[in-house]
Design a protein around this nucleic acid. Structure first.
Lengths: 126, 126
DNA sequence: TCGATATTTCCAGAAATATCGAATAAATGA
DNA sequence: TCATTTATTCGATATTTCTGGAAATATCGA
């Protein structure tokens, strides 16, 4: 995974408005939302929203499809997966130092039966 | 976790140079590296490096400590853990849609004995 | 065809970021 | 004390990003 793609994706999410847009699209799932619905829900003027959606699209974090006179936007989950994977690989160098992340993933689906001692041995945090 | 902190951290990493700085600090571990060593290794003029280190510090992604006339910088793993956890929680809404991430974590330590079918059922990627 | 609706593009000003030489500060050791 | 080393701050400039009104484009239903 090329670092410049990662930078583009990080930059796309590194904006209050765009992060909000993405977070609105996530629960909408594959069905997505038309631009207007996003504009209304977040109270963003259409041209401004369009600008931010273009950034997210360029970064591959959202996908647009035309449907009649609507343009439906959906979160591209594979892209954010790649982003998370990149950060994970570039974080702890083979050490398990991700108690919060493991909790987050555990919340979504319990992969660990017993609360692994990974959580206890904490990474080198200072 | 406040979204504006997340935005600050994403923005801090969303720059070619700063991402490189962070990636140099990660393998250095808790011992860290003096600013000069980073400057030399990445070929960045001192004032420019100082500017970027300040951003990373402000975002809480790196920590500085004075040691004689050196300033030693270390990666703050807990911070990037929080970042990854945030993205994880805001990605798939309870669905396990993170094959790449699970692979990345598995590489670091095999948490799953059998290659869970999570990988197969892929998320709603389009 | 026409009017209404949905969205994007154009544009220009405002704001925020990035770069790096020169100057400055702080710690060290002779 | 003084020269040296390490790092930050200052300052001037360049570049990029953000914002939203006005105009353009596209689709639809009547």
């Amino acid at each position: 995974m090329d670092a410049s793609i990662i930078v583009t994706r990080l930059a796309a999410l590194a904006h209050e408005t765009r992060l909000a847009i993405f977070r609105v699209l996530v629960p909408a799932g594959p069905q997505g939302l038309p631009a207007g619905a996003i504009s209304e829900r977040l109270g963003i003027p259409a041209p401004t929203l369009s600008f931010h959606l273009a950034q997210l699209t360029r970064a591959g974090l959202v996908v647009a499809r035309q449907q009649g006179r609507y343009v439906i936007y959906t979160a591209h989950f594979a892209a954010i997966d790649e982003l998370i994977a990149y950060l994970t690989e570039n974080c702890c160098q083979g050490l398990a130092c991700l108690p919060k992340t493991q909790t987050a993933m555990g919340k979504r689906r319990p992969i660990l039966e017993k609360p692994s001692r990974l959580k206890e041995e904490a990474c080198n945090d200072h």
